[in-house]
């Protein structure tokens, strides 16, 4: 896990935090405060090894309204496999929360993927479905 996210700090919850939590809740349609930090999503996630913070940590940061979560790469690494969605004991869909965070970045015109970087070699083999899916998830 990235040290940046691990350092101990004092969190003061202000109106701005609540505003951010509310924004994510509205976009995702999920009640993030239902999360009880059991870690099932993190334990089930096939991509967790590549993430800088775990999915449950991401949920916690959203609960607390910490906008710093937007600098994490966790929600970009999410492949929308919905394993967390079917396993969450509280019935939350963390995949939707990740999508909401992606959309917040993309709507500020901050694309994650530069399509011009696709090599000629890859262009020859990549199926349409991969390109359409990646462009929908990573460009705004």
């Amino acid at each position: 896990m990235n040290e940046r996210f691990l350092r101990i700090k004092r969190i003061v919850l202000g109106p701005r935090n609540r505003e951010f939590s509310k924004k994510v809740e509205e976009l995702s349609g999920e009640t993030v405060n239902l999360c009880e930090q059991c870690g099932t999503c993190s334990g089930s996630c096939p991509m967790v090894g590549e993430m800088d913070i775990t999915p449950s940590f991401m949920m916690r940061m959203v609960q607390l309204g910490e906008e710093e979560v937007l600098e994490s790469k966790t929600f970009w690494i999410c492949a929308s496999c919905y394993t967390c969605s079917v396993r969450c004991p509280r019935g939350i869909d963390p995949a939707k929360v990740a999508e909401a965070l992606r959309q917040i970045k993309l709507r500020a015109a901050l694309d994650f993927l530069d399509i011009s970087k696709i090599t000629e070699e890859e262009a020859k083999i990549l199926p349409q479905i991969a390109l359409v899916a990646a462009l929908r998830k990573f460009t705004g």
Partner: peptide, 20 residues
């Protein structure tokens, strides 16, 4: 058999998908 193959990450994160 139910594990994600990496899906659309294949466009930008080839290595990650290869590990999966």
């Amino acid at each position: 058999r139910l594990r994600c193959c990496g899906s659309y990450q294949t466009v930008s994160e080839k290595g990650l998908v290869a590990d999966l």
